[in-house]
Write a protein that binds this DNA or RNA. Structure first.
Length: 192
DNA sequence: CACCCGATTATCT
DNA sequence: GATAATCGGGTGT
């Protein structure tokens, strides 16, 4: 199942954020497979005051400065984990794409175990929700998304036309709110 | 070592 | 819409 190659992530962070819409996240746990289609992303560049990388390399954000195509996972608000994919053009020193929503398509039973909830539409429609449903924590910080043996990989998914993409300001930030770096996939299922 | 606060969510009004 | 819950990274003492 066509894993996205390293070079996919070695491009302008904002472009990668747009292109990740429709791709699949495949999470393997104890032989079980959880799959979701990426339906909302946000770009965070090192020259961007809203990015964790803006202040320079630290213990927490060092993944963002590492090789592209790896995961950057951090804890937010002391309660939730957020999943990012490291991606940047070589002229930037750091950059990543926050995964804000996925459409669950496989492994509902396991997801429900990690995230007990009756409504499937609320299973993974938020950055903290999807990491809970997919059981992604700081342990997965740094995993190589391009290695077939990894517990998290990213593969080709469904084609997405520009007409299906809504471009908006990023959510939940207080700086650089003018940048239109939030990309949302307009789709029939679980239209949020 | 104390203080501040955030790339959120669930729940209540 | 407002707010509590809850943690640890980053910063300055």
């Amino acid at each position: 199942m066509n894993i996205l190659p390293r070079k996919f992530y070695k491009r302008e962070t904002v472009v990668v954020a747009r292109d990740l819409l429709g791709k699949k996240i495949v999470r393997t746990i104890d032989g079980h497979k959880l799959v979701g289609i990426i339906s909302e992303t946000e770009a965070y560049r090192s020259d961007d005051p809203a990015s964790h990388a803006f202040i320079g390399k630290t213990e927490r954000n060092k993944s963002l400065f590492g090789e592209v195509g790896h995961a950057y996972v951090y804890m937010n608000y002391g309660l939730h984990y957020a999943l990012n994919f490291v991606a940047r053009d070589p002229k930037f020193e750091a950059g990543g794409v926050l995964i804000r929503q996925v459409i669950p398509i496989e492994g509902y039973d396991i997801m429900h175990k990690f995230r007990p909830i009756s409504n499937d539409a609320l299973l993974s429609n938020g950055p903290g929700k999807l990491t809970q449903a997919f059981n992604i924590t700081k342990k997965q910080n740094g995993v190589d998304l391009t290695d077939p043996r990894s517990e998290i990989i990213v593969t080709e998914g469904i084609p997405v036309t520009d007409e299906q993409v809504k471009i908006s300001p990023r959510i939940g930030i207080s700086r650089a709110t003018d940048k239109l770096w939030n990309f949302t996939l307009l789709h029939k299922k679980y239209l949020s």
